[in-house]
Structures are given as structure tokens and as C-alpha cells.
């Protein structure tokens, strides 16, 4: 395993802002891992995402993606085709009137031959489970479907990394589930590196690593079990641990002694059941 994205003491301030949105942040993302980035609004999550494909470049410090410095203009296209980016509002990232034409947009920009674009479009739509909708008009799809089309749109660049900036914020529970299972599959089966920015804790349960941002720097990072079990930290960051952790935590205060590293509902219930039966 090697680090595929590296932030080195990155500072960034939006033009016209008084406060820095990133204050010397350093982090590293492993190739092929599923990383969730959490934090309250204004913690710098989106700025981090935009640094990952050189939409923003650091005021000072350095961001390296696949060994390339994002501040070097000559790397721009190479970085962007390697880091697919999906945003919150699916309506504002779909450019064409027909699903398949939209997915073709990126490979067309890259100057790929027609026949290969066709293949890429079909295989990308297949990966997100939207192949049967390829002739549909995007504005008639549901939010979750649109967002999966947007994911297919970046997959068609065949990137190694996909960064999603709150992709589920505008979706209903079904749409959220579909999007999260799609990106989990991309990571586990297609070995892509996935960076998911979110404030829904339940979406991070399957992540390899969780990074909690606060005021432009890293407040905590580690496997989700570890981070979520620090209930005080989660509260302080305006986040809330999953109910499974919270209930075990409160039961511990009543005389139980559960480890707080269980995130699954079933495993949590099993532990409580075992403890109750042994009495």
C-alpha cells in the first residue's frame, strides 16, 4: 500500500475571506482505500476535496496526487483524469440532455476515439447500474439516479481515484443507499481509491479510515470504530456517533463493560444479548 494523495502543511484562503479555510493541514490517503472525511459545515471539507484535483491549489504547502504536484500547471489534465470528482447537486454537473451523451462528455474532452468512448460509456453506466437508462433524459430521473449518472460521468475517464463532495446531501434514503453501495463496490471490487465527504455517520461505517476536520485542520483520524468510540470528540465536532456506539457507551455507565468498537447493528445486539443472558 502506498499513499496516492498527500497533503503537506497545506494553507489555503479563499480570495476575499478573512479566515483561512485550510490551516496547515497534512494528511495522506492510501491507494485503494475508502476514506471518509467528516466535519461540520465550514470545517474545510470542500476545500480539501477541491485541492485533490487541482481546482484549488495551496497558498503554501504542497499537494501531491499520484506523485504529481498539483501546483504544476503541466500536470493539470493528467491529475484531473486521474481524480474523478462528484459534487452535491447532481443537476449542476450533468451537461447533456441524454444520459449516455453526458457520460461521454469527459472522454470526448480527452480526445478518445469514438469506438472506445462508446465502450467506456456503456461499461461506466453498467458499473453504476444505470445502463438501461442510457437513452433517458436526465431531468426525468430521481436524485439518486442522477447522482449515479454523475458518477458514471467521471468513471468514463477511468480514474484511479474518485472524490465525492457530499454526494448524498440532497438525496432521499433510497437514493443515499444506492449511491453509497455503488461507491463501496467501486472501492472493494474495482480497487478504486474513494474519498467520501459527508456528514452522515452511517455512510462511513464501512470506510477504512475516517478523517474528522475542524477549522481547517485534522481533529482526528483512524478506523471508524476508533474515531466513533470517542463520543466526547464527536459531540465537540457537532457530529453524532452511531446509535450502536452510543447505546454501548451509556450501558457501560450502568455497569456493563462493552468494547466500543462495534458499528454493526447485528454485532451490537449480539453483544448486548450475550451480556444479558450470562447474568
Amino acid at each position: 500500500m502506498s499513499s496516492i494523495i498527500q497533503f503537506d502543511h497545506v494553507h489555503y484562503k479563499y480570495p476575499g475571506d478573512e479566515k483561512e479555510s485550510l490551516c496547515g493541514i497534512s494528511l495522506s490517503i492510501e491507494e485503494g482505500s475508502f476514506v471518509a472525511v467528516l466535519g461540520r459545515n465550514g470545517s474545510g471539507k470542500s476545500s480539501v476535496a477541491k485541492h485533490m484535483n487541482a481546482i484549488l491549489v495551496p497558498d503554501s504547502g504542497k499537494v501531491t496526487v499520484c506523485g504529481m504536484d498539483t501546483a504544476d500547471e503541466s500536470n493539470l489534465l493528467k491529475i484531473r483524469r486521474n481524480v474523478g470528482m462528484v459534487f452535491q447537486n447532481p443537476d449542476n454537473q450533468i451537461v447533456a440532455n441524454v444520459v449516455e451523451d453526458d457520460v461521454a462528455f469527459a472522454p470526448e474532452n480527452l480526445g478518445i476515439p469514438s469506438a472506445e468512448i462508446r465502450e467506456r460509456v456503456d461499461s461506466s453506466l453498467e458499473l453504476v447500474g444505470m445502463l438501461e437508462y442510457k437513452k433517458h433524459a436526465p431531468h426525468l430521473l430521481s436524485g439518486g439516479q442522477k447522482q449515479r449518472v454523475a458518477i458514471a460521468g467521471v468513471l468514463a475517464m477511468q480514474p484511479g481515484i474518485i472524490v465525492l463532495d457530499e454526494p448524498t446531501a440532497m438525496l432521499d434514503p433510497q437514493g443515499r443507499k444506492d449511491v453509497i453501495s455503488t461507491i463501496t463496490r467501486l472501492c472493494r471490487e474495482n480497487h478504486m481509491t474513494v474519498v467520501l465527504i459527508t456528514h452522515h455517520m452511517d455512510e462511513c461505517v464501512n470506510a477504512d479510515e475516517v478523517i474528522v476536520l475542524s477549522a481547517g485542520s485534522v481533529a482526528a483520524s483512524g478506523p471508524p470504530q476508533e474515531v466513533f468510540s470517542d463520543i466526547a470528540l464527536m459531540e465537540e465536532q457537532g457530529l453524532s456517533s452511531p446509535e450502536t456506539v452510543k447505546i454501548l457507551y451509556d450501558l457501560n455507565r450502568e455497569g456493563f463493560s462493552f468494547p466500543l468498537t462495534t458499528l454493526g447493528v447485528d454485532a451490537c445486539a449480539q453483544m448486548i444479548a450475550d451480556a444479558l443472558e450470562s447474568r
Binding site: 459534487f87 454537473q93 470526448e108 476515439p113
Partner: peptide, 22 residues
């Protein structure tokens, strides 16, 4: 937002662009 999303998908004008549907 659309402009940023297009840039992220490597849009850089008409130069060197190909077409899926010839």
C-alpha cells in the same frame, strides 16, 4: 458549479475534442 464540474471532467474548449456519435 457547472463550470467547475466541467473543468473536473477535463473540459478545455473544442481543441482536440472527439465525438462519441460520429
Amino acid at each position: 458549479e457547472l463550470a467547475v464540474a466541467m473543468e473536473c471532467r477535463c473540459y478545455h474548449g473544442g481543441e482536440g475534442r472527439t465525438r462519441m456519435k460520429q
